[in-house]
């Protein structure tokens, strides 16, 4: 059970003068139950990549497999795929449209053709999972705060009971507490339900804090695909790609250069703190 990219290429406006390769020979294996971070500068191919995962885009060459089946085979059931691989777009709250939150979350499961009772049960569960208080269920989604709206939008995807959930910058535009809340919510979902999470993010600190593995896209290719520690060892290359390492990783490097005996691999605040305390002989 996994998503596999086998030599996937994608060219925008193929056969025209505007032809432009967005994905070049991408090979990836995303096993079940992983929490993965996807980073890369604007235009590096991240969005094109995730749109291949639920069949919104067909590769120009190569094959995408979901659970060992070619998702672009003529007989493959794509509607079913889209329920199983849920995609939460950037600013998903712009897609809310119903008169109340509950109805909005019902929309997805209803389209799956489920009986009304099941639809409502799923919507209820999903709204509970994202931590929306009952008071808001029958309010217009447009009266909610930015963070709450985003939760409702995420619930809309969760109600499809996906096996994989892809989130494209779910924290964009939120205040620091809102960012933390959404990331904790995603992390809890991952822990409790074992769902595979693919998190697209521009925040190196967030990625370092939460994910198990990082995929770095650069100019349409997979530049790195490894654990956060391994990826953030390549600071120079990351900077050349328009990215960076978490602030604490730079700190550790500078401390090491100043003669402190610290592990420069620390990528989270907790690790950095412990390393510094150790170097100072305080624990």
């Amino acid at each position: 059970m996994s998503i596999i990219f086998d030599h996937v290429n994608y060219i925008y406006d193929e056969d025209t003068a505007m032809a432009h390769a967005a994905l070049i020979d991408v090979n990836l294996k995303i096993p079940d139950g992983k929490f993965i971070g996807l980073i890369g500068h604007t235009g590096s191919g991240k969005s094109t990549l995730i749109q291949h995962m639920n069949g919104l885009i067909k590769p120009s060459g190569g094959t995408v497999y979901f659970n060992n089946e070619d998702i672009n085979a003529p007989t493959y059931n794509k509607k079913n795929l889209r329920a199983r691989v849920g995609l939460v777009f950037q600013y998903p709250e712009h897609q809310l449209f119903e008169t109340d939150c509950f109805k909005d979350v019902c929309f997805g499961p209803k389209n799956l053709g489920l009986p009304q009772k099941d639809v409502e049960l799923r919507a209820y569960e999903a709204l509970k999972q994202v931590g929306l208080e009952d008071d808001f269920f029958y309010q217009s989604p447009f009266d909610l705060s930015g963070g709450q709206k985003r939760r409702v939008a995420i619930a809309g995807v969760l109600a499809m009971k996906p096996e994989v959930m892809i989130l494209d910058e779910p924290t964009a535009g939120l205040d620091p507490k809102g960012r933390e809340d959404i990331l904790n919510l995603i992390s809890d979902l991952h822990k409790k339900t074992g769902i595979t999470i693919i998190l697209v993010s521009h925040s190196m600190e967030d990625v370092a804090d939460y994910v198990e593995r990082i995929i770095v896209m650069n100019k349409g290719r997979v530049a790195f695909d490894a654990e956060p520690k391994e990826v953030f060892r390549h600071v120079t290359e990351l900077e050349e790609m328009g990215l960076a390492a978490p602030q604490v990783t730079y700190c550790m490097k500078e401390l090491w250069e100043a003669g402190f005996d610290v592990d420069t691999d620390a990528t989270t605040l907790e690790e950095a703190k412990n390393e510094i305390l150790k170097a100072l002989g305080r624990c």
């Binding site: 205040d175 620091p176 305390l277």
Partner: peptide, 23 residues
């Protein structure tokens, strides 16, 4: 700042945590 749903830069937070540990 945390009460106000805000934060501080990661370096500032690291220093703050180290202070709490007695550095």
């Amino acid at each position: 700042l945390k009460e106000l749903r805000l934060g501080v830069p990661q370096v500032t937070l690291l220093a703050h945590e180290l202070r709490k540990s007695g550095v």
